[in-house]
Design a protein around this nucleic acid. Sequence first.
DNA 1: CCAAAGCATATGTTGAACATTAAAGCACTA
DNA 2: TAGTGCTTTAATGTTCAACATATGCTTTGG
Lengths: 252, 252
Amino acid sequence: MNARSDDKKANVAEILIKDIFSGLYQPGDFIPKELEICERFSLSRSVVRRHLSQLVDGGIIERISGYGSKVREYSEWNILDPVVTEWMTRFAAPNQEIQREVLAFRLTVEPFVAMTAASKATAHDLVAIEEAFHGMGQNLRHSESSEERHIHTDFDVAFHVAIFKATHNIVWAQLSHVLRPSIHLLIAESNITATDPEQSLERHRTLMEAIRMRQPQKAFHAAQAVLEGTALALGLDPHAGLIQAQFVEPSY
Amino acid sequence: MNARSDDKKANVAEILIKDIFSGLYQPGDFIPKELEICERFSLSRSVVRRHLSQLVDGGIIERISGYGSKVREYSEWNILDPVVTEWMTRFAAPNQEIQREVLAFRLTVEPFVAMTAASKATAHDLVAIEEAFHGMGQNLRHSESSEERHIHTDFDVAFHVAIFKATHNIVWAQLSHVLRPSIHLLIAESNITATDPEQSLERHRTLMEAIRMRQPQKAFHAAQAVLEGTALALGLDPHAGLIQAQFVEPSY
DNA sequence: CCAAAGCATATGTTGAACATTAAAGCACTA
DNA sequence: TAGTGCTTTAATGTTCAACATATGCTTTGG
């Protein structure tokens, strides 16, 4: 009877996810059987099965009828599933490998998104972007407590998502929803280790102004600069696996 | 007592999806209540609820406790969810609007993927791409029966997926899984109406060679050419709602 | 020694009872 | 008569228990 079994409201899916992320259950391993989980958390089979099916939907586990539930290889996980990215944000923050992959993807995609936004953004979009930016500035100045930092991070995420939406393309808008937790993860991590938050804010301002002034190419480079700043704050090499720089320069 | 109610094995989720795609239930409308569905298809509430929750996961419907299930706006749909793309592939084929959206999605994304693949592809990746390409060529020459055409389509899909994988980025690789059904849809449709399959094959070869020769810019344009060919075969305007054209043209 | 039948166990499916929520109708009051 | 609050009604949400099916292991017969 540990602390867990007393908490009737415990989200079994999240507890299992934590155990999987921590390495207690590794790919190939089998997690406890349904009835064991039922007994341990004093839950009915229905609720346990519903939670387990969340893990199945996320590609985390594979259920073998009459045998058990096996943890799948990391490459099989649906990391684009909003539920999974949410879990990753909350429970797998220290995983450098995944951070690097997500950052590489964003470095490929976000400059292009910013460029599109620069040519498509309406006044309404600019309002959203500007509000997020001002929120970042406000909470930057007195970011003593961890709570203040959290608010700053929220505005930072809102800033990036607003740019995705300003493309007025349903695909990018959808991707922003999916990437949202990942963006949150990267920002939260980088803000902790950020050496110069003022400079980061200035990079964001440059990006915002480029979009406002309808300067796609400038927006492209400004977005790159923002993400490179994030990469440096994380101690990652921003140029690992990048190619679009050589693509853009000729157009100057 | 229509034909449907006799088919006990009818997949309720798919039937509802078909009705929604056909416009019988439009965004804002309410679909039939659980018990009505139960009676109409002679199914228990458990199975009906499980199917309805699939639609909820896909963002297709919103369930309001004590009231009903409302069809959500198209923009709310999780078109990146593999299940949803699968449905779109199978039930929305005649829907030009959705085809256009899917094509716009790929036209936005695949040139970037090809570009990344050109700088990242290993010899092993090239083998996969080349095998798919040769498979396309083989089944192009004697594509009399519909079965032969099906094989050709499979190789075509494999070709595009192999390029996604060649980026060696887990996010792009995941996106290829998600896009797979959509790619299949577009290719199958375009192959039927294709006026010049030889020319299409040649465009694929150009793309493959660009990746092999590590020429990111050439790969970018080659991927665009392939997709524009697909668009023309579908009778769609490849430049409708696209933005990267203005980005690419300066580099000519 | 091998193979087929049987057993034990774990997951899959179903139906019913009960709980919760939201809209609509009704009565009471200012 | 308009408005407020309670009751009713009908839908969705939750839980439980019984039964069905699949898998691995054991036993038994040749």
